[in-house]
Nucleic acid binder design. Sequence first.
DNA 1: TTGTATGCGTTATCAA
DNA 2: TTGATAACGCATACAA
Lengths: 338, 338
Amino acid sequence: MQVATIKDVADAAGVSFKTVSRVVNGEKSVGPELRERVEQAIRDLGYKPTLAARQLAGQRSFIIGLIVPRLGISYIARMMIALATATRQAGYHLMTEVLDHDENHLSLSGKVDFSARPDCVMLTPPFSNDPRLVAHFEADGIAVVRIATVIEGHGLPIHVDEEPITVELMRHLIALGHRRIGLIGPPLPVRASEMRVSGYRKAMEEAGLPIDPDLMLRGDFSFASGVNGATAMLALPDRPTAIFATGDEMAAGVLAQAHKLGYRVPDDLAVAGFDDSPVSRMVFPALTTVYQPVQDIAQAAVDAAVHGRLPTAPFAYELRIRGSTSGDRQHCLDPYRF
Amino acid sequence: MQVATIKDVADAAGVSFKTVSRVVNGEKSVGPELRERVEQAIRDLGYKPTLAARQLAGQRSFIIGLIVPRLGISYIARMMIALATATRQAGYHLMTEVLDHDENHLSLSGKVDFSARPDCVMLTPPFSNDPRLVAHFEADGIAVVRIATVIEGHGLPIHVDEEPITVELMRHLIALGHRRIGLIGPPLPVRASEMRVSGYRKAMEEAGLPIDPDLMLRGDFSFASGVNGATAMLALPDRPTAIFATGDEMAAGVLAQAHKLGYRVPDDLAVAGFDDSPVSRMVFPALTTVYQPVQDIAQAAVDAAVHGRLPTAPFAYELRIRGSTSGDRQHCLDPYRF
DNA sequence: TTGTATGCGTTATCAA
DNA sequence: TTGATAACGCATACAA
């Protein structure tokens, strides 16, 4: 015999298969005696309900779709692992689709396959901020969870507020005596991470420091754009003594360029990033950065996907002060946990 | 009306739904005229066959399972993206499960859910080298693809041969004049990456260089183990002038410790890694390393999963010589593509 | 080449 | 509280 079906369980327990179905689905209209017999039979036969049949007969598929960009920064990889774990814990299955970063919603139908009929689709940045994508799914009656977004609109938005922690990070730099602090921000002023820019502004104003447009550049989260940003700013007559890049990969680019030019970090130039990505710990000196509560965010996203419940409390970001600003020469040896 | 079913298409095309089924499955026993009518109707209604129904009625599920470790080094993340892409191109769906690194096969049944009935399961390292895991799945009649393995046994092994490219890397170091070359290897002598160790030995012997046990340490692929290995070797009376770590994260640890101790890289100490991971490009100087043809490997794995076909030609590894051995101070600015 | 009947394993509806 | 029966959307065998 292959795998046990609901009928096998019913026969073994001496009940109708509908009763087994009730037990499996946790319905309480089952007598304690029968319930016990059924549960025993389920254990004995190692019965697991077939997903496809449940999906066909019921209205749920127990599948959650996940759409991620191909050009994955490590933040996405961490999110994928965390979402896979949270999905499983909720008794659901994760089906991952990769979408090219620059593809629009028109090419979507050909790429993303709805034949699995997920109960819900989760969108990571940058897709979580694309209203057209959301509309595309909702037109098919599929709920959409938008992970780490700041914009309103349809779907189930998992809002994040990165401004307070960014202000904290900036205060740290300012407390160290930096007055000219460069910023390498996200690509466009519409992204979720734009709050990292507003946090920068807020802290500068709070400290009574002038905001110099020359010190505010934009990158694309890549190492290369960090290098380029640093190159430009360090060539200024009145160069910054600290640079805050809104992503660790960019910050690593700043650090590398500083090394190449012979600057000592942090004595000549302090560098700070954002994300607490693996690379932030592997460069030398290790990068001061902001820890993203990826697991909490993933948990909230799955909760929204399964129960339609939105998170109530804000997520707990944490400042990680390391050598690239403090001058502490210790390595960060904590194992990187996803 | 919700989503179009096969019957809707049949009605629209004025044929029986079985004919539609034939067209969808690419059977050729359909007249050209009817075929055209059916295809038109499919386009008009935007029909996509429901996965669950195909799975229930047929014998295939069109689902491929993927099991990855939680403690993900970037190699795994890249593999996940590549596998998701290749799976989609093959018309299949990828269902990802995260397994804790140290879990044994006994706890497996509770963690990995078979209710999706995947046609095949793909295992990445380190799971791809666990015979018990393979047996576990095959007992359920599920084919198993073992990605990047060197051991024989059941399932569909996607063999990799990393020895030749490792020899090439070592020759590069030796050609630079290094005679005492340290090795920080994989955890146990049973892993796939053990070929990186044999490549080290082979190249040393080939060059007539002595193999000093003091210069052969083992790590666990983590940054921390690279730091520790470097610390130990650089404290030797006759310290190495070059260190080859069999993973980029470990190599980054070596590099960081070298910086901390004030060694110039590569003048005082050359460092080489393996994987061409993102971090290898973001440290300074950039790490000399070996590019892994992740996309090719992923393609082969999916091919094995879908058609049971094993790759014939070896995979094309590539040496990436960068500043950590050559002294070239240019950054690697290529966008990192998954 | 085309169409019809049957069943896959489960949930939903209704009756007992 | 239980159970019989009909779907769900499709593939498979078999018939036309």
